[in-house]
């Protein structure tokens, strides 16, 4: 049973069709990438999932039942892109307060806070105020407050922004850890290399609509352009238009070729061998998510235009 199903969600604002008919399914234990350019409607979508906004239309099924914001938000942890904590409040007290708001009992919350603070080496911060922390430190604190109540669904909006590589790895390991323990993670970001590394499944949203949905590998296969890179000792001389492939780029000792329709990689190799080329390497070149992202989003205006919505 999937943890979350969205059916035909729609949310219009006065001047924006923020989300226009989005449906998707997120399986339990998945690390799910929610991608899209600025202003695509990701935040609105997330706010509907976290019960902050009501959808105008459509249905949210959470954990097999119709989403009931009042009770179900205890099972959701949300870390917004704009980080927020009470600046003047002591860190220990604040973490306890936020945990209790999520429905944890005081003693229970204390125990968990201590575990996390020790794990993240934050125990000495207890009586400090948030305004005393650096950006990276408050980021770690924000992460702890998000996952402390052991939510079934964790939504992280740009969780690594402002973190150094050491802390990035620390959080990344925790994300894997939580997923392994059965939590589902929705991961929203613009950093495609992180998505490729972390996510199992991605959805790309643009202008309020879903334009791509699949596993990372599947998506890459779907968007491959039959490009192969061939490493050779010496570029063979007899390259002409009758070949089973065309040459995209030609640098010394390395060719990038596109296989023509109806041919297979073997045909390329066969041809090159016949030409007497000494082959050193042969690799399929799959597009990066970055390329796919740019290709899909390119051509649409870089920022959304205001429009009048009659709804």
């Amino acid at each position: 049973m999937p943890i979350l199903e969205l059916h035909h969600l729609r949310k219009y604002f006065a001047t924006q069709k923020a989300v226009e008919d989005i449906s998707l399914t997120i399986e339990r234990g998945q690390i799910f990438g929610l991608l899209g350019p600025n202003g695509a409607g990701k935040t609105t979508l997330i706010r509907m999932i976290t019960g902050i906004f009501y959808p105008d239309q459509g249905e949210i099924i959470f954990d097999g039942k119709r989403f009931d914001p009042l009770n179900d938000i205890a099972d959701i942890g949300y870390m917004p892109e704009e980080r927020g904590l009470y600046k003047k409040m002591k860190i220990g007290e604040q973490t306890l307060y936020l945990a209790q708001l999520k429905g944890l009992k005081k003693a229970d919350a204390m125990k968990k806070i201590k575990e996390w603070f020790i794990k993240f080496d934050m125990y000495s911060w207890w009586n400090k105020k948030v305004e005393d922390l650096s950006k990276g430190m408050s980021q770690k604190l924000q992460f702890v407050t998000t996952v402390l109540h052991e939510p079934k669904l964790i939504i992280l909006d740009e969780p690594f922004s402002g973190l150094d590589p050491v802390n990035t790895n620390l959080i990344k390991d925790e994300i894997y850890n939580l997923a392994q323990k059965g939590a589902t993670i929705i991961f929203s970001t613009h950093r495609m290399e992180q998505v490729e590394e972390i996510c199992d499944h991605i959805v790309l949203v643009n202008k309020g609509e879903k334009i791509l949905d699949g596993t990372v590998n599947q998506v890459k296969q779907d968007f491959k352009e039959n490009l192969f890179s061939v490493g050779v000792e010496r570029i063979p001389a007899g390259l002409n238009s009758n070949m089973p492939f065309e040459v995209v780029s030609n640098k010394e000792q390395s060719l990038v070729v596109r296989i023509k329709d109806g041919n297979r990689p073997n045909d390329v190799l066969q041809y090159l061998l016949q030409q007497g080329a000494a082959i050193r390497s042969f690799n399929e070149m799959l597009p990066s998510l970055n390329d796919i992202f740019i290709r899909l989003v390119e051509g649409t205006p870089t920022s959304r235009q205001f429009q009048n919505v009659n709804a």
Binding site: R83, L85, Y86, L101
Partner: peptide, 17 residues
């Protein structure tokens, strides 16, 4: 205003109405 500008509001409203 303080809750809004320090952006804690979004975290609180994901816990309470």
């Amino acid at each position: 205003m303080e809750e809004k500008t320090s952006r804690i509001a979004e975290i609180i409203v994901s816990s309470v109405k």
